[in-house]
Write a protein that binds this DNA or RNA. Sequence first.
DNA 1: TAGATTGTTAATCGATTAACAATC
DNA 2: TAGATTGTTAATCGATTAACAATC
Lengths: 206, 206
Amino acid sequence: MATNEAPDIVVGRLPIYLRALTIMAEEGQEITSSQELSKKLGISSAQIRKDLSHFGEFGKQGTGYEIAYLRDQLKRILHVERTWPVALVGYGDLGTALANYAGFAPKGFEIVAVFDSAQDKVGQQIAGKEVLDLTEFPAVVRERDIKVAIVAVPSSAAQEVAGILVESGIKAILNYAPINISVPAEVQVQYIDPAAHLQHMTYYLE
Amino acid sequence: MATNEAPDIVVGRLPIYLRALTIMAEEGQEITSSQELSKKLGISSAQIRKDLSHFGEFGKQGTGYEIAYLRDQLKRILHVERTWPVALVGYGDLGTALANYAGFAPKGFEIVAVFDSAQDKVGQQIAGKEVLDLTEFPAVVRERDIKVAIVAVPSSAAQEVAGILVESGIKAILNYAPINISVPAEVQVQYIDPAAHLQHMTYYLE
DNA sequence: TAGATTGTTAATCGATTAACAATC
DNA sequence: TAGATTGTTAATCGATTAACAATC
């Protein structure tokens, strides 16, 4: 009994399920079960079944889930049956690593444009792309209909950059700057802050 | 009324609070309130007060929180009043970015050793450190009493590397490989998977 | 068929919110 | 004092788990 609105916390687990299914598929496995996924992911089998039930019925009683089928369904649900063009802002060490990162393409994302405001960086080549001046951001994003952007600039510039992205029509922002940015409610934001994760863990140490 | 055991989800928010307080302190602000933090972070003021109440009483009725004091208390609770030496495994693009990342030091972490198993990488210099052979990992970690490690190797190597880390006495692992690793229960693991965050957001797009 | 596993319901568990006495 | 804000309690809300009928 698939409903139309799934809790955000459930949506956040779908990429984890998709990741596991993709790995199993690559290993040639064809069938799995909520129990096997549970063991691999450390998430209870009941929760996995409940999570999936928000979106439809994908398994067979007594058998489990056909991996290729469930993987395709999750891709469809997450809207990554397509490839999303992504704009990257910030061409420092992190930006360079992200521009070279091979892990985006198989997950449905391709960095198609890199921006920085430092004039000595503008014009450089990275992974087959030219680094563009940030002032060109709105035009490029509109022209190429880019909806997703990654922010890899210093914290001090993050809010200003976020404003430019939103005004240019960006709808999803992955923010690597360790600072909260404020955007309109209809714009998605996710944060990546490695130091915060480390602090979360050191709480339990010693 | 501070208790001894706080929910993990609460612990996970403390670094966010600490981050905000640190920024305010840098801006010269001396006092804040749960209401102001709420507005900055998009977390309800009641939740902020409740979260903090797990660890003690840090505020003054009618006034709010002294920023420097609360910041120091959160550092103490998260065990980052000290600096943790960190071992980084994997010297690719991502490893390079992490080794150069200036954001760890002010948060209580310092990458003191970089490891890779590729012989053409071993011996290179990065941010004042020499890239060491992974085979030296156990000895270095024991000698320097390193408890925290960052994994920035390909997925295919992540589980094997994790095994080496655990055997060497590592107690907290920040894993950038987009794969679940299995470790003993007493070892902390956190994951960073940018593609998963992007997929979480594209669910809501279109 | 017998065995296994789904999808779903109901119960439990835990987290968030609302409200307010205490008090700075 | 009057105004503001904490820390905490109780209520609400939501997520997870347990259990099992359905069924492959």
